[in-house]
Design a protein around this nucleic acid. Structure first.
Length: 296
DNA sequence: CACCAGGCAAGCC
DNA sequence: GGCTTGCATGGT
């Protein structure tokens, strides 16, 4: 990887295993939108950026080398060697994973803020991705801090304190439905110190998961997503309806399995790379609509 | 109209 | 422990 500043852009070259559509359409992140061909715009850590890619050149528009080094390099997980990860996942003779890796070869697991990940995946429960994005967008535009980027106003993800100060009926403007009480309760816990997210980051995966599952609105699947997307725990393998479907279809002859069975199968097969394997499978399942026969 | 969406909490046994 | 049901909202 090489990065240099050209005018107000940061231009990245020699960066393999990086495709914006794979990264932002694999369900890990809800705050980036496609704004043109091979171009996505979104906000993280209170800053907005437009990322595009053309001819193996990645351009982060209207930003600084300082922000690249402090925020985007780590956020986009540019320090990790996905070539060897993909090789390892593909080398076991697993034809399904081989194909999934080919499909989503440009996926990177974003290093997102833990607080934002917690709330985002509480909102994801029994919901669909367009509406998850809509609710989170409303949460940010209603209660986040505004900033200007390339002549437009964008909003940060609101702080725990900001949400904690709300009443339930004020929060209802985001149309989160039954999830609003989960959001409020977690915000109040983080704001008053009952929930210590920084301490959680230091715990091992099993202990962190146990703590996460104590939170109102956080169960087995949502905690796995928080571990994977907000804490970089690649040994976490979230099993949602898509993963359940594709695993049953590809590994169990389309026969229904319990979530526990699928989790154990994944842990055995993918081990410490489970979370990354999950993202390749999720992207593959959705792109090909595997197991979906209702004409989407 | 029914059913589904990156599930979870609460109530049962 | 495992299983069932209700849950807000919006889309098809």
């Amino acid at each position: 990887m090489n990065a240099e500043t050209i005018n107000n852009d940061v231009v990245i070259t020699n960066q393999p295993d990086f495709e914006l559509s794979h990264i932002f359409d694999c369900g890990q992140c809800f705050r980036f939108e496609r704004t043109a061909d091979n171009e996505y715009t979104g906000t993280a850590f209170g800053k907005t950026v437009t990322a595009s890619k053309q001819n193996d050149k990645i351009i982060l528009r209207s930003t600084s080398m300082e922000d690249f080094k402090n925020i985007w390099y780590n956020y986009l997980d540019l320090g990790r060697d996905y070539t060897s990860i993909k090789k390892e996942l593909s080398s076991g003779g697993d034809k399904v994973m081989e194909k999934a890796v080919r499909y989503g070869g440009g996926i990177r697991i974003l290093n997102q803020e833990l607080w934002e990940t917690l709330i985002s995946f509480i909102i994801s429960a029994s919901n669909n991705i367009p509406r998850i994005k809509k609710i989170i967008g409303l949460l940010c535009s209603s209660f986040g801090e505004p900033h200007e980027y390339m002549g437009k106003i964008y909003y940060s993800f609101p702080s725990p304190e900001r949400i904690a100060a709300l009443e339930l009926d004020e929060l209802s403007v985001i149309r989160a439905g039954f999830r609003d009480k989960y959001i409020l309760e977690c915000a109040r816990g983080v704001a008053d110190g009952r929930i210590d997210l920084d301490a959680l980051k230091k715990a091992d995966t099993a202990a962190a998961k146990k703590e996460l599952m104590k939170l109102y609105g956080v169960g087995n699947k949502v905690s796995d997503c928080i571990l994977l997307f907000g804490m970089g725990r690649f040994d976490s393998f979230p099993v949602d309806v898509w993963i359940k479907r594709i695993m049953e279809y590809c590994y169990f002859g389309s026969e229904q399995q319990s979530i526990k069975t699928i989790s154990e199968f994944a842990a055995e097969r993918y081990g410490r790379l489970g979370g990354i394997a999950q993202q390749y499978l999720f992207f593959y399942a959705r792109e090909c609509r595997i197991g979906v026969h209702n004409g989407g």
